[in-house]
């Protein structure tokens, strides 16, 4: 009888308990970045190396003339890489550990879970962003308006990559497929497009292909704000519109196609 009363009371408490949304959000960040960084510090080196390696390559090949563009490109690649990592991490936690299944059957909503996971990718990129931030103090010169625009561009790239990452993650069923998607996204959107150097370095017929990637518009806007290239006001407007539209469309696709509860 005592046990029954206790159960009933617990159930009542359960009904009126206020769930801490911040805790739910924080859990994703802890699991997907902070605990990994704390328990396996070697991953910190890895997160720095990826964007910096391309930067160094471009700087050496251009004899230092493209250092500003390369630092900006490093920021864009870090932001886009966060989405690629999100795809791999969501898929890994869902398919290999079944952790997402445990979260689905809990009071956490998909939006809280995915937002936390997205921010965790930013946290994971912090070492690289700090190194790039220090380099940008010396090599990138932005006005106050330029800095705001640059941050806005980075946020849009981040949002775009998150939408791509989340959508792909819901369709990947195992780790091999997940890595295949990761590499594909990374190559198509951050390695091939002119992110670390101006688009004018690409021969004309191929430039049209480069414009199929949203990261091309992001890099173009960043280079324009840094004073590395000249763009007409119409081209600036077109770049913003394309970048914002692609982000919005990808979010709509992610919202409609991605699955929290499986069918």
């Amino acid at each position: 009888m005592l046990e029954t009363r206790e159960r009933i009371w617990n159930s009542y408490i359960n009904t009126i308990r206020k769930r801490n949304r911040f805790s739910q959000f924080t859990a994703s960040i802890l699991v997907n970045s902070l605990y990994e960084m704390k328990n396996y510090p070697v991953v910190l080196v890895n997160t720095v190396l990826s964007p910096i390696s391309f930067l160094l390559l471009i700087v050496f090949v251009s004899h230092g003339s493209l250092v500003g563009e390369a630092v900006e490109g490093g920021f864009i690649m870090s932001m886009f890489g966060a989405g690629t990592s999100l795809q791999a991490d969501l898929s890994h936690l869902k398919n290999d550990f079944k952790l997402q299944d445990m979260v689905v059957s809990s009071p956490t909503s998909w939006i809280t879970y995915v937002s936390g996971m997205a921010i965790s990718e930013l946290v994971y990129s912090l070492p690289a962003l700090i190194v790039l931030g220090v380099l940008s103090v010396y090599f990138v010169h932005l006005s106050a308006v330029g800095l705001v625009s640059f941050i806005a561009v980075l946020m849009l790239v981040f949002a775009t990559s998150m939408a791509i990452g989340y959508t792909f993650a819901t369709f990947s069923t195992d780790i091999v497929q997940s890595f295949a998607f990761s590499r594909l996204i990374s190559t198509l959107f951050s390695t091939i497009p002119p992110v670390y150097y101006p688009i004018t370095y690409i021969p004309l017929p191929y430039r049209y292909l480069a414009y199929l990637s949203p990261t091309t518009y992001a890099a173009q806007l960043a280079q324009y704000e840094g004073g590395y290239i000249q763009l007409s006001p119409e081209m600036v407007l077109v770049s913003w519109v394309v970048l914002a539209s692609v982000t919005a469309v990808l979010f709509l696709i992610a919202g409609s196609k991605a699955r929290w509860r499986e069918k």
């Binding site: 801490n20 805790s23 994703s28 802890l30 605990y35 328990n39 396996y40 445990m102 809990s106």
Partner: peptide, 25 residues
């Protein structure tokens, strides 16, 4: 779930407390 596994880079304390954070504690 049937094939649930613990995340190797976490400790039992981190695993259990993270799950409870997801439950809103």
């Amino acid at each position: 779930p049937q094939e649930a596994r613990t995340v190797p880079w976490m400790t039992p304390m981190q695993t259990v407390s993270s799950y409870l954070l997801w439950r809103g504690f």
